[in-house]
């Protein structure tokens, strides 16, 4: 698997898109810090960008890389290499190079602005950790979509729909159900519903860490009670880890049965 990972990674490192992505984050980091001139405020603005943008990039890059490397995959399949390691290697190649772009692209400007002397350092670290989680999760979901769809156009459409659903539609449905069911106690329901969407989960994690959960109103208070404790925080992180593991398991399962 590590050989495949190596080749996928170098292949991606040489591609123009990794640099576009890296420079975008570099520019974003510098501009935000220049405009805000305050690390903690920049972290809040960044959160809003990361939580929407990272999943989008992860999904698009994931499907794009899978379809683009079809020939490479076919070549590998005839070689003495385990099937699962071909796909997991390619997945890790994409996920790691995207995560590196994020970490370097945002890390560099913040370090230059004196992150290590700032009290916002842990907020920022949490932001990067959730960003990495979101990259891993959405690249994995994208690989799943691509494995199930031979047709490129279909695969791309499903991937975009998935992102749209998780980033926008889910919140709408969530809010509507809260309004419709307002007579009932909704603590458990809202916590449950949040666990089922990695984007929501990450947003809440960061907001709680930033201690602005008052902005979240009633549900915020519930989350504060639930997530605020060390246990709640740990549970949210494990939920994110599960979101990484499940798509990976399915890649492994599906790739064993697929014809090429």
């Amino acid at each position: 698997m590590f050989k495949i990972l190596k080749y996928s990674f170098f292949d991606l490192i040489r591609s123009r898109w990794s640099y576009v992505y890296l420079f975008f984050y570099l520019a974003l980091g510098f501009v935000l810090l220049f405009l805000n001139n305050d690390l903690s405020k920049a972290v809040i603005t960044l959160m809003n960008v990361i939580i929407i943008l990272v999943p989008l990039i992860g999904t698009i890059f994931g499907v794009m890389y899978y379809y683009d490397s079809k020939e490479f995959t076919e070549l590998l399949l005839a070689q003495p290499v385990k099937r699962a390691s071909i796909f997991l290697g390619q997945y890790l190649g994409v996920a790691i190079s995207l995560s590196l772009s994020l970490l370097i692209g945002l890390g560099l400007p913040f370090i230059l602005y004196g992150l290590f002397q700032s009290s916002a350092i842990w907020d920022f670290v949490l932001l990067l950790v959730t960003g990495t989680f979101l990259t891993l999760i959405f690249t994995g979901l994208a690989f799943n979509i691509a494995l199930y769809n031979e047709n490129k156009i279909k695969g791309f459409s499903y991937a975009i729909l998935l992102w749209l659903f998780m980033a926008v539609i889910y919140d709408g449905l969530f809010l509507m159900s809260l309004i419709l069911l307002e007579e009932y106690p909704l603590d458990t329901f809202s916590i449950g519903a949040t666990l089922f969407n990695p984007i929501d989960l990450s947003r809440i994690l960061i907001l709680l860490k930033l201690d602005i959960s008052a902005l979240l109103g009633y549900t915020g208070a519930v989350f504060q009670k639930f997530f605020g404790t060390g246990l709640g925080f740990l549970m949210a992180l494990s939920a994110l880890a599960l979101w990484v593991a499940l798509p990976l398991l399915n890649i492994y399962r599906k790739s064993r049965k697929k014809d090429f």
Binding site: D11, R14, S15, S69, K70, E71, F72, E74, L75, A78, Q79, P80, V81, K82, R83, R256
Partner: peptide, 21 residues
């Protein structure tokens, strides 16, 4: 469900599709 045996095989695919870059 094995893959080791492919060490014993040299295969020429019909349509030569290679990673283009």
């Amino acid at each position: 469900n094995k893959w080791n045996y492919r060490n014993e095989i040299d295969y020429l695919p019909q349509i030569a599709n290679f990673p283009s870059n």
